[in-house]
């Protein structure tokens, strides 16, 4: 079967043309997977309306939605969102810089490995959320202990994955590029770091998950602003609707950052088997 196109010039060497890389069309989400979640929300609503779930234990989905709209309207939710996101952002930046830097030092240099890896591996076994009392003594109850907690939680998964990624670089590729005349720094940037990228992205996803968790714990301790403050304050007044709004926002933020990393992964790791 052949289709001829009128007026199209015959290509002497059609093999030269790179095959177009077409992505497989994304399938529509299977609607059947939505049945049970929607049923659970419906049951929740019914339980609240029949008095089975009193509002001081759990507010109905409808009340939660209204509370969310109200909080968004007054700007309270927006302010809390900005404060909490800023804490995670700063903490993550500090922790990621430390984790990646230590991972590179320990992964690349023999002495770095001797000096950096043992203390990091020891500290890693500490339950870092248990450090809150110390952090309060060290940093007080302002922004610092929350940011420090996030930074600490972020640093370990990134360190471990960057370190492993660099250690597992294929020595054959190092040898091949050395034979091609690559200098040490060229090998670092063109071979070692790219081959550590898949591991690093795994570490990034783990550390972002830990970042939100650390923030939530940190904000429970003592906060005069942010989502944690919103939730704690609501507890005083038995406003379970506001508490749920705060939790939903936390969840949405976690999902959003995870989605961003996935997007980065898909773009940066195109060369790997799908």
């Amino acid at each position: 079967m052949s289709v001829s196109t009128l007026g199209a010039p015959a290509r002497a060497d059609s093999a030269q043309q790179p095959p177009p890389e077409r992505k497989p069309r994304r399938k529509l989400p299977d609607l059947r997977r939505w049945i049970s979640p929607l049923a659970i929300v419906a049951l929740w609503q019914i339980a609240c309306e029949t008095g089975l779930l009193p509002p001081d234990k759990l507010s109905s989905p409808w009340t939660v939605l209204q509370a969310g709209i109200e909080l968004a309207g007054t700007g309270e939710l927006g302010d809390a969102f900005v404060v909490s996101t800023t804490r995670v952002g700063i903490g993550f930046a500090i922790g990621a810089a430390i984790g990646v830097l230590l991972g590179i030092v320990a992964g690349l240099s023999r002495w770095g490995n001797y000096l950096v890896d043992p203390p990091v591996q020891m500290l890693r076994t500490l339950p870092f959320l248990g450090l809150i009392p110390l952090f309060i003594l060290w940093f007080g109850i302002g922004e610092e202990p929350k940011i420090a907690l996030v930074a600490l939680g972020v640093a370990f998964p990134l360190y471990l994955n960057v370190y492993a990624g660099i250690r597992n670089v294929d020595s054959h590729l190092i040898e091949a590029t050395t034979a091609l005349g690559y200098t040490r720094s060229e090998r670092l940037f063109h071979v070692v770091l790219p081959s550590a990228l898949p591991n690093t992205l795994v570490g990034l996803r783990q550390s972002l998950g830990v970042a939100w968790l650390s923030l939530i714990v940190g904000e429970q301790v003592n906060a005069s602003s942010g989502l944690g403050y919103l939730i704690n304050n609501a507890r005083e007044f038995l406003r379970t609707d506001v508490i749920v709004v705060g939790l939903v926002v936390y969840a949405a933020l976690g999902l959003a950052t995870d989605a961003i990393v996935r997007l980065v992964e898909r773009r940066a790791l195109r060369w790997r088997a799908a």
């Binding site: 040898e175 590029t177 034979a179 063109h190 081959s195 060369w271």
Partner: peptide, 26 residues
């Protein structure tokens, strides 16, 4: 100048084929 071709092709998997070819050129 010396070039080597090894038993395994040792291409950088994160570079497209043509970029692997010009890898050794400075």
């Amino acid at each position: 100048k010396v070039s080597v071709a090894f038993q395994q092709p040792r291409l950088l998997p994160w570079r497209r084929v043509w970029r692997n070819v010009v890898l050794g050129l400075h």
